[in-house]
């Protein structure tokens, strides 16, 4: 056991006996190595600061509970705690990736509101209302299939069972419904785009 280790062991013992000053000496002595080690893994000052703090909170709790038993190996013990907390940090980040808004990177370049704005929403509502009027001009059998498929989101199998025709017939009616709908739109010279 070299001199520094012997000193650490004495300071740890003294701290466990209630001398708070010993902790201050221990932290001041080892803070650079521990903090630099953490930073070299996470490359983020704030995260390194948090992990450094959590490391020493664990150290303090363990020592105060009198559960420290690695006499003479204080620094390796603290480094192992720091290492485990670094691993925890990466595990946590893997589950919940973090985006940082620093430098040229702008978080809003990857995040955007996919919803329509008020104007586009009004246009969309108008178009949908127009289409609902237009489909009324379709023959009854085609209208029935189109409504079931588009508005009720039924499969062609379900449509064929409901209407009592084969799947192919239902598909054909849907096809003609769309062809006829296009004809109606052209006839009325309508523009149905957002």
């Amino acid at each position: 056991m070299d001199n520094a280790e012997a000193n650490d062991a004495l300071l740890v013992k003294s701290y466990m006996e209630g001398d708070e000053q010993s902790l201050s000496i221990l932290i001041n002595r080892h803070q650079q190595r521990i903090y630099s080690f953490i930073f070299s893994k996470v490359f983020d000052k704030d995260v390194a600061e948090d992990i450094f703090q959590d490391t020493f909170i664990k150290v303090i709790k363990t020592l105060k509970r009198g559960k420290y038993n690695e006499e003479g190996k204080f620094l390796p013990w603290v480094m192992r705690i720091a290492h485990n907390l670094v691993i925890d940090h990466f595990r946590k980040n893997k589950r919940m990736p973090k985006f940082e808004n620093s430098g040229d990177f702008n978080i809003f370049s990857v995040l955007c509101d996919s919803g329509l704005n008020a104007e586009k929403q009004i246009i969309k509502d108008q178009i949908e209302a127009d289409v609902q009027e237009l489909i009324k001009e379709l023959p009854e059998d085609q209208l029935e299939v189109l409504v079931m498929r588009i508005y009720k989101d039924m499969s062609f199998k379900e449509i064929s069972e409901r209407t009592g025709v084969s799947i192919n017939t239902a598909l054909g009616r849907m096809r003609y419904a769309l062809i006829n709908l296009r004809k109606v739109i052209e006839k009325h010279n309508l523009v149905l785009t957002n």
């Binding site: 708070e20 902790l23 201050s24 932290i27 001041n28 803070q31 650079q32 903090y35 630099s36 930073f39 390194a48 600061e49 450094f52 703090q53 020493f56 909170i57 303090i60």
Partner: peptide, 12 residues
């Protein structure tokens, strides 16, 4: 590198 003084102060 060293941690901030505030962190050390908090720990103490």
């Amino acid at each position: 590198m060293n941690p901030k003084k505030e962190t050390i102060s908090f720990l103490l």
